[in-house]
Design a protein around this nucleic acid. Structure first.
Lengths: 240, 240
DNA sequence: CGCAAAGTTGAGCGTCCTCAAGCAGCGTGG
DNA sequence: CCACGCTGCTTGAGGACGCTCAACTTTGCG
């Protein structure tokens, strides 16, 4: 527990250090965005990477046939826009889910700064690497967990993201509708609703008295245990 | 069609240029791997990035509770190991599906080379960016497509990967079992088998006379059409 | 040739989706 | 102030898609 706390505070410290480094080394365009506004949109010419200073954001992928999907969520310290580097234009919409501030950094300026300050390159690569890792965990969750466990995993990841940033993780205010959560997790809004109800019934989570948007997590371990219980049959099947 | 061909040949040319650049600028450890062998394993200390020169590879993510999942596939020109940068150890197993050769490059040496040759940094970032984009497309496929369409999408992506590399894309030799494909696509091996049978019945694909491992794709557009047909109901639902 | 591994196909079932009804919170306007 | 409409959430009933279990066929290899 204390070990986990240490790791979390290290993480939060690393974010602070990164932001400081950026402030010192590259020109930054600060920009306040309100809920629903987008930092950039799919197809727009790529020129900047963006670092979340506050608020939180979703990335929405849009297919040519109209399907759209929330593919990732981003909090303070996360970078937005990596997907634009390869093609020279962004591949997703980056949408604010709440009032927040992003620091926009011209990619070419960042590259120049990296040449004189290798530490900057280090944090950039680390951020990209971390994002790839998270995407893979998402894919695994999508492929191997049943709906209820996927919702539990979602809440656990959110709680982790909060605690890593030094915030209290036992009280989550979802700023997403059931439909958005469902879209992100590959299920319908009804299934999300039912999953949350079941988690509450099993006392893995609790709803705030008013409004089903605030979720109290008595013990994060209970979420993990719930997930493992769901995979138990699959685990035994994988044994032989 | 000619435009697509142009794009593909550009892509294949870019791979050649990247490999040449690497040869000239950084020390490379060439390494031949045989089917089933791994380039690196999850948990191993990160030290190198690896570029696929030939063969093809799967990345297998392993959860603490024993679930394991194929999260991505890699062909010539793709990089392996990005997920190791952040934590200092690899997060997945990289396994050869066929005899092939990877070029292993020490990450620290690569960084030094990038300092003197910015073009190198460009190709590196482009590769990471591309990988993030592909992961997102995978997530979208997993979340929004029914099983049959997901298999069709899988084949289409494979064909694209081949044609981008200047290989003929109408003849695919799957070097994965149905079980592996199913694991990658989040479904059971039986469902994969049935999906392929249905695609063949609809003449979207054809099996080679002997062995159901070789798949002939008369027209790639037919695959795309099949996918869109599957999403048609969802598309109308998303209309209003 | 014979065995093991991979693939196909069918039957039954369970999870999740669809459709539908009802409720709760909330801002607007009579 | 409360009626009203709107959006979001919950819950139920029924159905479909995909999973499980099982039998059988095909392929590859010693």
């Amino acid at each position: 527990m204390t070990a986990a706390k240490d790791l979390d505070s290290q993480f939060s410290h690393r974010i602070a250090r990164t932001l400081k480094l950026l402030q010192e080394q590259v020109p930054i365009q600060r920009r306040v965005v309100r809920a629903g506004e987008s930092v950039y949109q799919a197809g727009e010419a790529f020129g900047c990477l963006h670092v979340v200073n506050s608020g939180f954001f979703k990335m929405v992928n849009l297919a040519s046939d109209g399907r759209e999907q929330v593919v990732s969520l981003h909090f303070r310290g996360d970078w937005l826009g990596f997907d634009g580097i390869a093609e020279g234009r962004y591949g997703c919409d980056a949408v604010a889910m709440d009032t927040g501030e992003v620091w926009s950094i011209r990619y070419d300026a960042l590259m120049r700064a990296c040449m004189s300050e290798p530490a900057l390159l280090g944090v950039l690569h680390e951020a990209m690497s971390r994002e790839i890792g998270r995407d893979r965990d998402s894919m695994m969750s999508l492929c191997t967990l049943p709906a209820d466990a996927r919702v539990a995993d979602f809440l656990r990841n959110w709680a982790d993201a909060l605690s890593q940033r030094g915030l209290r993780a036992d009280q989550i205010t979802l700023r997403m509708t059931r439909a958005e959560i469902g879209n992100y997790l590959g299920m319908t809004l009804e299934t999300v609703s039912r999953a949350l109800s079941r988690l509450a019934r099993g006392d893995v989570i609790r709803f705030a008295e008013k409004g089903r948007r605030d979720i109290h997590i008595p013990r994060v371990e209970a979420l993990t245990a719930f997930i493992q219980r769901s995979t138990a049959p699959a685990a035994t099947a994988a044994m032989h």
